[in-house]
Simulated assay, not measured.
Amino acid sequence: MKNIRTQTIDTIDQIKGLVDWLVVHHTLPTPFSPTMYIDLEGVSLSRLGSVSILTLFLRVDGPISPIFLIDVHTLGSQAFETAGTKEKTLRDVLQDKEIPKVFFDVRNDSDALFAHFGVALQGVEDVQLMESATRKTTASRKRVAGLTSCIEDNASTCFGGSGLVSWKQAKENGSRLFKTELGGSYEVFNQRPIPDDVVSYCVGDVQCLPELRDQF
């Protein structure tokens, strides 16, 4: 797994810069077009709730890959409707069927993006369904696997034999902040600045997706 660099995107100028970068690196001919690995967090994430953070992991050439936390709670619709110098928006990128976007269980993410911002995702690959398709029997596919179990079953692929313990700890620390049964609240995703444990939790949801996608 590559080293990662995390950056919060919470201003209009940052959105413009990110969108321009995405457009340039996905315009043919390019030697390498990075796949987008995406996850969303929010309060009751769905058409009935809200979107707080869009986490975007770009698998790029080089030793360090960026993970962007787009602050949808702060930016609102401007996160998707702000055009860069290339006259394209994040909505355009997300709706471009030629740009692959990888999710793990895209259902609520897609529902929330379309209901609140009119974003109709295109070019989606769902790692949860890819894992299910690798199973040998119909009976074994009656239930889909969660992200944690997929990562635990493929820890050597994701972490090269190490790192699973710290990944699980980061996920547990984040879960305690928002799971009501643990005394938390999903409103923590709207707390600004974004708490460090929430950042680590969001990173954990996307950092293994490249390896899982390659595996399945």
Rank of each mutant, 00 (worst) to 15 (best):
I70F: 03
F57S: 06
L54D: 09
S46T: 11
I64W: 10
A83R: 04
L56C: 05
Q95A: 05
I67R: 01
L94G: 13
P63K: 15
T89V: 01
D61W: 06
G49V: 15
T74R: 15
F80Q: 03
R59Y: 12
D61R: 12
G49Y: 10
L90Q: 13
Q95E: 15
D92T: 07
I64K: 15
F68R: 02
S52T: 13
A79K: 06
P63T: 05
E81F: 04
V72F: 01
F80M: 08
R59H: 12
Q78Y: 10
I53S: 01
S52Q: 11
G49A: 14
E81H: 10
L54I: 13
V60N: 06
T89F: 00
L69C: 09
L90N: 11
T74E: 14
G62C: 05
K97G: 13
V43I: 15
L48A: 15
I67Y: 00
L48M: 06
R59F: 07
S46Y: 09
G49M: 09
S46F: 15
T55A: 03
T74P: 07
L94M: 12
T85G: 06
V93N: 05
T55V: 02
L45C: 10
L45H: 10
P63C: 10
F68Y: 15
T89P: 06
R47C: 12
A83H: 02
L45N: 05
S44P: 03
F68S: 03
T82V: 02
G49C: 09
S44Q: 15
L90E: 08
D92F: 00
F68A: 03
T82G: 01
D61A: 12
I53C: 06
G84P: 03
G76T: 07
V51M: 08
E81G: 08
I70N: 06
G62H: 10
D96P: 09
F68D: 02
K97S: 11
G84S: 02
L45A: 09
A79C: 09
K86Y: 05
V93W: 00
E87I: 02
S44M: 10
V60L: 12
L48T: 13
L56I: 00
I53F: 04
S77F: 01
S44L: 04
V60R: 04
A79R: 06
G76N: 09
T55L: 01
S77D: 12
L58V: 02
S50E: 15
L69R: 03
T55N: 13
V72Q: 05
D96Q: 14
A79S: 14
L69H: 13
L94W: 07
L58F: 03
L75M: 04
G49L: 07
I53K: 00
S77K: 13
I67W: 08
T55P: 14
R47V: 05
D96L: 05
